[in-house]
Design a binder for these strands. Structure first.
Lengths: 345, 345
DNA sequence: CTGTTAGCGCGTTCAG
DNA sequence: CTGAACGCGCTAACAG
């Protein structure tokens, strides 16, 4: 176990101040003698030293810590975002504290409270509710807060999200062009703003294509789970006595469920079905089907989130431009004739 | 921002001690008058209170915090394990601090040092090196340490891992039965004990099947990445002028790379290829191929890790039984004739 | 160049 | 039942 500054002081006979100066690399500044430095450094080399962050935080009212609240730790999108954020944090000697809310408002509040009590210097949240915000605003004082992925109205904090409207528009457009006909949209988590944006994008594409009954093409559930996807697909298959020629899903989980249902009912997944999904996953490569995916740019999202977090004081244009929207990429797989991808936004 | 105990004391006129007793639910014990309690509680109801964990940690030499070091945050297996651990931590009012090592010894050491400096009460590591351990042991004093996923020799700390030998044995056996012939094994991260165990299991299955050249069937790279998988598959295709009839991979990443290579070279993935992989992912359902996967039991792994972490003092049988081995499940997809799954271990 | 000092907020002990 | 006082290890300001 490494020693405290005082222990080093006692052991070497120098005062705590002297010890601290060499510990903090200020020996030049205060012209500590070479001999003194050596003695201290030698002692440290043997016995070790690491600051006590608890004491440091207590004194400085700063924890060098960032809190992150996400719905789910084992969701490819959030995991990638967390990974990207963690790297940025490490560069600044910040520790990222990640807590899952499981899309449950109560757990979300507990997570936020916990993180705030731990004295995080910044807080990043993919909120599952608008109601949380008042609670936050009340305790806001010490941490700068950034929302991401879901931009509820009004945006009480800086918010970073993907261009869901554009992503949905481009994907739906391509799918409908591909099948020269309509496409169903299976949505989970209806209540979320990001999903609403996707639905608007989908409808815009329908309108372009001269499709009248866009409203009926959008199916939704309140949860974002494979089960929800299964259930919606089940309804579709019942209604048409066969799987749809084309459909798109609001998430990988919904797609998973939908495909499981198709496989369960028909024994396999017809390779002529055209599908689309939000979020990308490398394994989509291995389906023989034509399949589109809207890939979110986690790196850019993480960068913008981090910038908002770090520079809260500077550049106070305040209420204006509180929202950052990040373009997505449409990935196209197994098409014979067209290009493979295109930028949105 | 919630108040400190002293602020509450000043605001309500009671002494800090009195405030603390009601904050800590000891008002009964010290027979605080009902009126006093009410005044204090009312104040708290309005202004809020949350303990300052920095001060608390400083005083108690305990942070109510567990550290977790994993190679990669956006790896399905580790993400699931992290999620499972987080839930257990929350139940005990512990905060889980997760840091990625990116399978880089230097980053791993930094991560461990950081976590230890933050005063974690426990430390869980999926180590990418044996060399780390001395460093740890030196600083061990305050945190109980548990290793998982990779059990280096000798096991200097309690270690929890899956039954990799058995998993590989069962999977290889089934694949070879399925194709009535040999199967290649594409391995990443050769140096890891878990991979070594898988190779031993694979060879055992070969021996059972009377296959002589098991050694040649094992291909390996030092990294566990899609690129490594691609590269190995490329070699295989070159050697045989076509993709193998059957192969298995040491991880999903390797499988990803291998399949990408097959697709790149042959335009599609022949549905008669039989494959296997360590770790499961729901999307494997959607390949038309016969495909096996060895699913690790993250819940049980997390439970055993947590138990080792929490109960380090009790039951000191010490050196004996330092290792926990958790059974895996073999998942079989798209087989016509056989059952879908079987337990190992 | 080196030493001393005063809190940060909390848990605990001791005196009333 | 309530108040006062100490110290956890660190930072920062001030005195030599």
């Amino acid at each position: 176990m490494s020693k405290t500054a005082e222990e080093i002081s006692k052991a070497t006979g120098f005062s705590i101040t002297t010890i601290r100066f060499v510990l903090n690399g200020q020996s030049e500044k205060y012209r500590i003698s070479a001999s003194t430095q050596k003695q201290i450094n030698d002692y440290i080399a043997v016995h070790g030293y690491s600051v006590n962050h608890a004491a440091r935080s207590l004194k400085l009212k700063r924890s060098d810590t960032i809190g992150l609240v996400v719905p789910d730790l084992d969701n490819a999108f959030f995991a990638r975002l967390m990974a990207a954020l963690e790297i940025r944090c490490r560069k600044r000697n910040l520790l990222l504290l990640t807590v899952a809310s499981h899309d449950n408002p109560e757990l979300e509040n507990r997570a936020i409270t916990t993180l705030l009590a731990r004295g995080v210097d910044g807080l990043v949240i993919a909120p599952c509710q608008q109601a949380t915000l008042p609670l936050l605003i009340k305790n806001k004082a010490r941490a700068s807060v950034v929302m991401f992925d879901r931009d509820f109205n009004p945006p009480l904090f800086p918010t970073v999200s993907s261009d869901n409207f554009q992503g949905a528009l481009l994907m739906a457009r391509r799918i409908m062009k591909e099948v020269k006909g309509p496409c169903h949209f299976l949505c989970g988590d209806m209540g979320l703003p990001s999903i609403q944006d996707r639905i608007r994008g989908f409808k815009a594409a329908c309108e372009e294509a001269g499709i009248q009954n866009a409203e009926e093409l959008v199916l939704f559930e309140s949860d974002n789970t494979p089960e929800a996807g299964k259930h919606l697909m089940k309804g579709l298959i019942e209604a048409f006595q066969s799987p749809p020629r084309a459909f798109m899903c609001s998430s990988l989980m919904m797609l998973e469920g939908a495909l499981q249902q198709i496989k369960a009912e028909t024994g396999s997944i017809d390779k002529d079905i055209v599908m689309g999904t939000f979020d990308d996953y490398p394994m989509l490569d291995f389906l023989p089907n034509r399949i589109f995916s809207v890939k979110q740019d986690e790196q850019t999202l993480a960068r913008k989130v981090f910038d908002r977090l770090i520079a809260p004081i500077s550049e106070r244009k305040d209420s204006q431009n509180l929202r950052d929207v990040v373009p997505t990429t449409l990935i196209c797989r197994n098409l014979k004739r067209r290009a493979r991808s295109a930028k949105s936004g």
